[in-house]
């Protein structure tokens, strides 16, 4: 923390004015950041009449959760009026295996690349790293063809494959940057003690890894849950993940526009990642910055 270097000097008039200004700016931005959340939650609790007649910013007259229920189990997505529920489970079924696979492979790859620096390891890492930054537009077309060839287009398996592969680049980066901070001497000591590659990983490295595993899992889960491009490109109809279904629900033009249901659907769709953010925000920030601070 900055010691002297703050505006927290003796309380002169000017310093108090500065302090007030500072808080004013912080609060204005807080309002800006919170506005969409407030509007979405508020609208989702209002009835349609209330939305049309009242102000966007007005508090709801009563807590009416019927739009939530409607969005979850009744709303029409395209021609299917099943609500978001089946799509929610699609996303869960897609995200959990992808997160596990990419984290596990990323951990092993990162471990190999840092603790057993074989010839070409740096080149391998550079090539994998670039995979993080490739715009996915350049791979969706061949991916669509490949998924078709394997016969897993429009299935959860196709999306698991896609997310595992492209997630691996990030998880490898995370684990590699974490493992370079673990001293090599630990691995050397264990080698002399007689432990092999996997034993060292399981007995020495893995017990030191929980922080980065949490970062990786949170990052991957958020990325996969929030993905829209792959879901929209490789699935249609009932196989879609929730993010695509939600967008379709909002953009379905038949009938009366039910803003409250749209907003409830947005809330339901965002809930898992927001939940993760609330319980593990600290690790969330670490994951976000890990991509920029390389070891």
């Amino acid at each position: 923390m900055s010691d002297q270097a703050t505006f927290n000097q003796p309380r002169t008039g000017a310093s108090i004015a500065l302090r007030v200004l500072l808080w004013a700016v912080l609060i204005v931005f807080a309002i800006w950041f919170l506005l969409p959340a407030y509007v979405v939650v508020g609208t989702s609790l209002k009835g349609l009449e209330e939305i049309r007649g009242g102000s966007l910013l007005a508090l709801p007259h009563e807590l009416n959760f019927s739009s939530w229920r409607h969005a979850w189990s009744e709303a029409c997505i395209g021609v299917n009026c099943t609500g978001l529920e089946p799509y929610f489970w699609n996303s869960v079924g897609m995200a959990i295996p992808s997160v596990i696979i990419s984290t596990l492979l990323g951990a092993l790859t990162g471990y190999s690349l840092t603790k057993f620096k074989f010839k070409g390891a740096n080149l391998v890492f550079a090539l994998i790293l670039f995979g993080c930054f490739v715009p996915f537009q350049v791979v969706i077309l061949p991916m669509a063809v490949t998924l078709g060839k394997i016969g897993i287009t429009n299935t959860v398996y196709g999306l698991i494959l896609v997310h595992s592969v492209y997630g691996m680049a990030f998880t490898t980066l995370f684990f590699r940057n974490y493992y370079v901070t673990i001293p090599d001497e630990l691995v050397r000591a264990a080698t002399i003690d007689g432990a092999g590659f996997f034993t060292i990983f399981r007995r020495i490295i893995l017990p030191l890894s929980p922080p980065i595993i949490v970062v990786s899992v949170i990052w991957q889960f958020t990325q996969i849950w929030n993905d829209f491009l792959f879901g929209a490109s490789f699935t249609t109809g009932g196989a879609q993940p929730i993010m695509v279904a939600m967008n379709n629900l909002v953009n379905t033009t038949t009938g009366v526009k039910q803003y409250n249901v749209d907003m409830a659907a947005a809330l339901i769709t965002a809930a898992p990642t927001i939940f993760v953010y609330i319980i593990a925000g600290r690790y969330f920030v670490r994951g976000l910055t890990a991509g920029s601070v390389k070891g």
């Binding site: 001293p183 001497e185 630990l186 000591a189 002399i192 003690d193 007689g194 432990a195 017990p207 030191l208």
Partner: peptide, 25 residues
């Protein structure tokens, strides 16, 4: 057997386990 500059003790194991690790392997 080797003694390292940084000692390279396994941080997740107790002292007893650290010493016994080589024998266990």
């Amino acid at each position: 057997a080797m003694v390292f500059q940084s000692y390279a003790l396994y941080p997740n194991m107790t002292v007893a386990k650290n010493i016994a690790f080589g024998l266990e392997m």
